[in-house]
Design a protein around this nucleic acid. Structure first.
Length: 416
RNA sequence: GGACGAGUGGGUGAGUGGCUGAAACCACAUCCCUGCUAAGGAUGCGUAUGGGUAACUGUACCGAGAGUUCGAAUCUCUCCUCGUCCA
């Protein structure tokens, strides 16, 4: 949720920033107007209610003193009718405003580059040089099948398309990666948490997946429960509606979960292999911080994810997402893209975002700053998407005969 | 699945229709006293939002929602959660 007071106060500059992200100017004008209308409606209701409360007090006194109340009762009854109307008006305005405001994305930072889509993202730096192959490197689905690591058909058999099954070393590597990543994050100061894979509507609203992106979520039939699209949702919402002490911050957490996405709108993209699945494993980083330290934590999270890839000796690059590619709740995002020699390009493997107070405002997460309560900043990032890391290992560690070497750091996790 | 009981501020907990946004205690903060390791005193101390430079003040909130009433933490209904007992 954007700061409506700020929008009202600095309408010109805030709306200019939001328009960079493709928000319609007319919509912003509408939000501003609804916000003002709501304030007027509220003031009117409160004025009437104050009168009502005063009269009710008098009523009590009259009764105690045995005075005649019929005149007062008539006044109070008349006022009551006005109040009922005022409540109705206020409720209407509130609903109208919420409907529009909840669908407005976060304000992008000034250093977010303008752009349409991922083509316009700006490379920040490259880490490690891709290896030279003296043969034509294969794509991961081929390697996965020849090694018997991943079975795509059987995933479809027991579920539907975009599901797969890992066997043997493929499955063991996934588990090794999860453990390696969690241990790595823990050493960097992120506390491990284990959270529910089903969440309620309130949680999804808190982090911004709802109301706008319901189509991409799996919903449990007949219940207000959804499968999580990312651990960011349950972990960030752990502190929903709380006022934290400044000395508890920053809270740095890491969680492994499965993630579930319908991938609505991704028809035809990455249909082959395990780049884009309906269910995938991910180790996530989440931080809750004071505004003053959120950028420092952001950098820590980016290095944490990048250093995991470096430890795995996987070449990758960092890119600064442009306005067109920036997610709904993010003020700015750094993506990490891993080198896939089979596809001969860098592909997203991690996405780290600072949402600033956008989620905190929705989820009502605050902290006591001296005497005042202030919204926290929340950040989230993957470290890393497990399936895609496995893909990167297969493609980067492949030999000409199709066999795959095991990264050194994972060997202890595999009893090697 | 059934029966009963409970859900109040950071914590414990009082409060069965107006004098309660809520006693008391603990915790916390500031100040004072004292000084030798632990104690005494004073004051302050919920959240959100509107108005005001401010002092201050309006409104809402006692699990959630709806209702009765001039007036609800308190009465009624529905739901949720937690306990205890039963199947």
């Amino acid at each position: 949720m954007i700061d409506l007071k700020l929008l009202q106060k600095d309408f010109e500059s805030v709306s200019a920033k939001l328009m960079r992200k493709g928000v319609d100017a007319a919509l912003l004008e509408q939000v501003k107007q609804k916000f003002e209308e709501l304030k007027v409606a509220k003031a009117e209701f409160e004025r009437l209610q104050a009168a009502q409360n005063a009269m009710s007090k008098e009523f009590g006194i009259y009764k105690r003193e045995g005075k005649d109340i019929s005149e007062l009762k008539a006044k109070v009854d008349a006022n009551k009718l006005l109040i009922n109307d005022a409540i109705e008006v206020q409720r209407e305005k509130q609903e109208e405003l919420e409907k529009i405001a909840m669908a407005i994305p976060n304000i992008p930072d000034d250093n977010v580059p303008d752009g349409e889509d991922e083509e316009d993202n700006v490379e920040l730096k490259k880490v490690l040089t891709p290896r030279e192959f003296d043969f034509t490197p294969k794509e991961h689905w081929e390697l996965a099948e020849t090694n018997g690591w991943i079975d795509f058909e059987r995933g479809v058999k027991v579920a539907t398309s975009r599901f797969s099954v890992s066997f043997g070393m493929g499955a063991r590597l996934e588990r090794a990666l999860i453990n390696f990543m969690l241990d790595f994050n823990r050493e960097r100061g992120f506390e491990e948490v284990s959270v529910p894979a089903l969440v309620n509507r309130r949680a999804l609203e808190g982090t911004g997946q709802l109301p706008k992106f319901e189509d991409d979520l799996y919903k449990i039939d007949g219940q207000e429960l959804f499968l999580i699209p990312t651990a960011e949702v349950p972990v960030t919402n752990l502190y929903q509606d709380e006022i934290l002490h400044a000395d508890e911050l920053p809270k740095r957490m890491t969680a492994y979960t499965s993630c579930f996405r319908k991938e609505a709108g991704a028809a035809g993209r990455d249909t082959r292999g395990m780049i884009r699945q309906h269910q995938f494993h991910k180790v996530e980083l989440v931080a809750i911080t004071t505004p003053a330290t959120s950028e420092i934590i952001f950098e820590q999270m980016v290095s944490c994810a990048s250093d995991i890839l470096t430890a795995l000796e996987l070449p990758h690059r960092l890119v600064n997402l442009c306005t067109g590619d920036l997610g709904f709740g993010a003020a700015h995002t750094t993506d990490i893209e891993v080198w896939l020699p089979g596809q001969n390009k860098y592909r997203e493997i991690s996405s780290i975002s600072n949402t600033r107070d956008f989620q905190a405002r929705r989820a009502k997460i605050r902290f006591k700053n001296g005497k005042k309560n202030e919204l926290v900043h929340t950040l989230n990032g993957s470290s890393l998407a497990v399936g895609r890391t496995l893909v990167a290992i297969m493609e980067n560690y492949q030999n000409e005969d199709g066999s795959i070497d095991i990264p050194e750091v994972l060997k202890p996790y595999l009893g090697m």
